[in-house]
Design a protein around this nucleic acid. Structure first.
Length: 500
RNA sequence: GCGGGUGUAGCUCAGUGGUAGAGCGUCACGUUGCCAACGUGACUGUCGUGGGUUCAAAUCCCAUCACCCGCUCCA
């Protein structure tokens, strides 16, 4: 049975072994920012590789993309982020609890005993900031969900969730830009380019992995919610009417991905979004949740899979039509309205012509959007184990071979009789195929245990018998069992064991 | 941002006003014959940071930063 890991144990192990450090630690740290160390970068790269392999490489209907983080300001106008990507929060003066304004409920009036005044809470992310502010101004009848006090709130505080920066070294001539809050918009912006250059046909997807930035109101739990984070997103374009079946397809595919990489089934589940939780453009949304060991051991989201309909492509067609207003307003996004949709919007540049059906339409989009850092954390937490071996505690990370930072460690049993030379030769040969690690220092048991804690699946030991019959021992991380393998079969044998 | 907790060596922690410590880890040398072995030795500290009180501060006071838990939010 594996031990339930506490987050603190994981944080400590990550530091001790060089998986994850706090950013700018020598200066006292920078809130919410973390650095991946030598083992961590391997793990994270492996998570990305595994995602890319299953999402792009193994499929005939998905191509990749890598967009810039900075994009034309109008992208964020069209996507809605520039106006709407903000939360309004008010604080109860009595109990000092902060609550999102849109989550506050009215005190039921006596005449409406059924409580029907409770409106479905609409996510502020998708309400224009001005409108939300106006609507939120009157909190006199709202109830604090914490202490039940009515109408004693501070002025709603808006939070800008997008990072701003300046482009252009000339201060007078520089333009305010945003760091992307999601990678998805770069994909929509390149939809036409990909269509025109790759001979893809609907249904097909465009995949991208990259950094995004959000000024979260609060950060949380180590690398779980940070303001700078890495996403793996797929926009899968399909014909309207087939969207629900593709939604189901990706739900299953994405769930299986986590399981296949070793997450325990009992720690993973779907959570369907309620109707009133859905963004107004989304037809359906489900989260893949992992049972993280923070606090009370709550389920937390690893990935969201949404049916975004044709909303984004249609918005960008409106965005393109707004470009002149943007020039005229001297690049001030706040002063312009997004143009209305063209009457012929179905024939716009972001539409698709289906040659078989002789039909033009704007495709629907299924979007599985995964957090790479949180996935990495889930794999760390899920793989962490402590067990008693001869009265000693053995710490290990039971990584799937695909994720293990080091695949094979090579040791001479002792530093004599030519064992190090043989071991080095084997190491030099194997490292062409796998990420390997060589170590000839200290006791063999210690070397094994160190690799256990790094999650290395296999350790090879060159011993006295190697000198006689050219076999080495292959020691399995999880069982600690050893078998002898002939050196000329090592590569093949390990390939099989590692599934590489 | 609010409330609660924490911050001393790479890690875990002891140290409540008087010379900064332990265990583990790391490194070196010797030894080695398969699971954190043993011996000897070595390195490691802005006591989170800044200020104050004091003859004297890791210790008391103030401020600040960071982390954890809760509220909240999300990939």
């Amino acid at each position: 049975m594996s031990k339930i890991a506490k987050l603190d144990d994981i944080v400590s192990l990550c530091k001790r072994r060089g998986f994850i450090f706090q950013s700018s630690e020598i200066y006292g740290g920078l809130a919410s920012c973390y650095d991946y160390g030598p083992l961590g970068v391997e793990l994270k790269n492996n998570v990305k590789k595994a995602w890319w392999k299953s999402t792009v490489q193994m499929r005939d209907d998905v191509v990749g993309l890598d967009c810039s983080i900075l994009m034309h300001p109008m992208v964020w106008k069209a996507s809605g982020h520039a106006d709407k990507f903000a939360d309004l929060i008010a604080e109860c003066k009595k109990c000092n609890t902060r609550t999102r304004v849109d989550h506050l409920k009215e005190k039921p009036l006596p005449s409406e005993a059924e409580g029907v005044t409770e409106q479905a809470a609409q996510h502020t992310e998708h309400i224009a900031l001005d409108a939300a502010m106006a609507k939120a101004r009157d909190l006199s009848n709202k109830v604090c969900p914490n202490c039940g006090t009515v109408g004693r709130f501070t002025e709603p505080m808006p939070f800008k969730l997008m990072f701003e920066t300046q482009m252009g070294a000339n201060v007078d001539d520089s333009m305010t830009m945003h760091l992307r809050p999601e990678t998805a918009q770069g994909i929509f912006a390149n939809f036409r380019n990909v269509l025109d250059t790759t001979r893809v046909k609907i249904p097909f997807g465009i995949a991208q992995i990259g950094k995004s930035f959000r000024n979260e109101v609060t950060t949380k739990a180590f690398i779980f919610r940070t303001r700078e984070f890495e996403q793996a997103e797929l926009e899968f374009f399909c014909e309207p009417g087939t969207d629900e079946q593709w939604f189901e397809h990706w739900k299953q595919a994405r769930f299986d991905w986590y399981i296949n990489l070793g997450l325990k089934k009992e720690n993973l589940r779907f959570r369907e979004h309620d109707i009133d939780e859905l963004a107004h453009y989304a037809k359906g949304c489900v989260d893949v949740e992992y049972k993280f060991p923070f606090g009370s051991g709550d389920w937390q989201e690893l990935e969201g899979i949404a049916n975004r309909t044709d909303f984004d492509l249609r918005q960008h067609q409106r965005g393109i039509r707004t470009l002149n207003k943007w020039y005229e307003s001297d690049g001030d996004l706040t002063n312009i309205e997004l143009s209305n949709e063209a009457e012929e919007y179905l024939k716009g540049p972001l539409s698709y012509f289906d040659d078989q059906q002789k039909k033009r339409y704007i495709p629907y989009v299924i979007e599985p959007s995964a957090g790479i850092d949180r996935s990495a954390l889930a794999f760390l937490v899920d793989g962490y184990d402590e067990e008693e071996v001869r009265g000693e505690t053995r710490n290990l990370l039971r990584f799937s071979p695909a994720l293990a930072p080091v695949k094979v460690a090579v040791f001479p049993l002792v530093k004599k009789e030519g064992m190090p030379d043989i071991a080095k030769n084997i190491y030099n040969d194997l490292k062409k195929h796998f990420n390997c690690f060589y170590d000839e220092k200290g006791a063999i048991g210690r070397r094994y245990r160190r690799q256990d804690e790094a999650g290395t699946p296999f350790c090879l030991t060159i011993d006295g018998q190697t000198l006689e019959d050219n076999t080495v021992t292959v020691r399995d991380r999880d069982s600690m069992d050893q078998i002898r393998v002939s050196t000329d079969q090592l590569t093949n044998d390990l390939r099989k064991k590692l599934d590489m």
